[in-house]
Amino acid sequence: MDTLQNLGRWALGMFERLGRGHLFLLYVLMGTPGLLFRLRLVVQQVYSVGVLSLLIVTVSGLFVGMVLGLQGYNTLVDFGSEEALSVVVALSLVRELGPVVTALLFAGRAGSALTAEIGLMKATEQLAGMEMMAVDPLRRVVAPRFLAGFISMPLLAAIFSAVGVFGGWFVGVGLLGVDDGAFWSQMTAKVDFYEDIVNGVIKSAVFGFVATWIALFEGYDAVPTSEGVSRATTRTVVHTALAVLGLDFVLTALMFGGV
């Protein structure tokens, strides 16, 4: 009987939280048009959410590209088709690894920071203080961060992919002796703008939306204590990772068909 009750309570709690999360999103989205007149707030956040994530994204992109170059070369060379290396590297990055790995890095670097920041603002009564000054924290604090995350993610993913291609080129052409001309011409011939690049950008935009939403909601909904904030930060990273990987499957099935 106890287990059943607990299960019921857990389910109710979960749905209630889910409802709060969606209402939260609605309010935040309603707050974004007003930001057109206060772009400075958004730019500040693009700096701390996006620009400060640049280093980790570039370095990871470089290494992922280099690994792809190595692995791809070793497989392709058996079939004598190592000129296709650039296609393997570019498609893996643009379609999959760029959006997905960037979103995971984004959750760890920017998402956790957003959760901790908002959660601490709540714990130290800064949000309550703003409300008493008739300033809506959802509009003033949360909405600019949301917009910044949504804008930054596709850009970071694009940078990740670009740097990754360069890493693949460095390993393939620079170290393993793949023909330089073939590398680039194969890539420009086989990578389709709409099919590959646009779909990749859509993916990263969706991931950016979801990752930022989760991070901000976890912070806003955190239990206002140091333990509560630390739990919320952990949840941000875990939930974002799960959401991104799950959504990736759904989006891939929709975009590239086959299911």
Binding site: A128, G129, M130, M132, M133, A134, V135
Partner: peptide, 26 residues
Amino acid sequence: RKRMGMLFQSGALLTDLTVFDNVAFP
């Protein structure tokens, strides 16, 4: 609320703004 001021027990200053910007905030 624009016509009510409240002084919180904890102060509730915005920690990412200077003293000047905090007072200028409202």
